[in-house]
Each structure stands twice: as C-alpha cells, then as structure tokens.
C-alpha cells in the first residue's frame, strides 16, 4: 500500500479516468425470507461498516422492496463487498450502470 502522502498527489483526472473506464458498479442486497432482521443489520455493519441506522434502513428497504443498493463505486471494491456479504449468506447482485 502506498504511503498516504502519495495518494494525495494523484492527479484528479487519473482517478476520474479509472472510474469512467470501469464504470460505476452497485452492490445490491436482495431480500430473503430466512435471515433474521437483526442478523442482516449486524452483517451490514460488519461488512460495509454502516452505523446501526444506515444498516437498518437498507435492511428494511430490501425487506419491503425486495432489494437495496448498499454500495456503489469501482468494480473491484464492489466485488470485495459482494464477496463479504455472500460469505455471511446474504444474497447479492452486482450491477453496473450500463445494465440500467
């Protein structure tokens, strides 16, 4: 991992280019009727670092609407989060902006 100081010297255009090339990816949590609400909230906090209120909001959104976008950004990071959620048996999808 590069030192923090080098990260701040990256030209803004380079970051933008990377995002554009990779596109924006969404980690979508799907509702399932098995996992407990308290479990889902705990997992969202654990994997995505959400506070209690944010985790609860996403859990309820998935419960009521069938899905909730829990994270958006570069693909590599989206895959990391999707893998983490799957490891806790929460069903997820990865969607790119281009699929909408």
């Amino acid at each position: 991992m590069p030192p923090a100081s080098s990260a701040t010297t990256l030209p803004q255009t380079e970051t933008h280019a990377a995002t554009t090339l990779g596109g924006v990816w969404h980690v979508v949590l799907l509702n399932d009727p098995v996992n407990l609400m308290s479990y889902t909230v705990a997992v969202l906090r654990r994997v995505l670092g959400f506070d209690e209120a944010t985790a609860r909001k996403h859990m309820l959104e998935a419960h009521e609407q069938g899905r909730s976008v829990v994270w958006s950004g570069l693909r590599e990071r989206a895959e990391h989060y999707a893998f983490g959620l799957q490891q806790w048996h929460l069903t997820t999808r990865l969607e790119s902006d281009e699929t909408h």
């Binding site: 799957q86 048996h89 999808r93 990865l94």
Partner: peptide, 19 residues
Amino acid sequence: DLAAPLRLDSLDDEFRAEW
C-alpha cells in the same frame, strides 16, 4: 454447495468458480 447460491452473473466463469 453454497447455502445462498451466487447470483453474480457479471463475474466471468473462472473468477466465479474461484469465489
């Protein structure tokens, strides 16, 4: 088998198998 099957269609086959 996975208890919650992968629904990550966007992964390529090799990567998906590794996961």
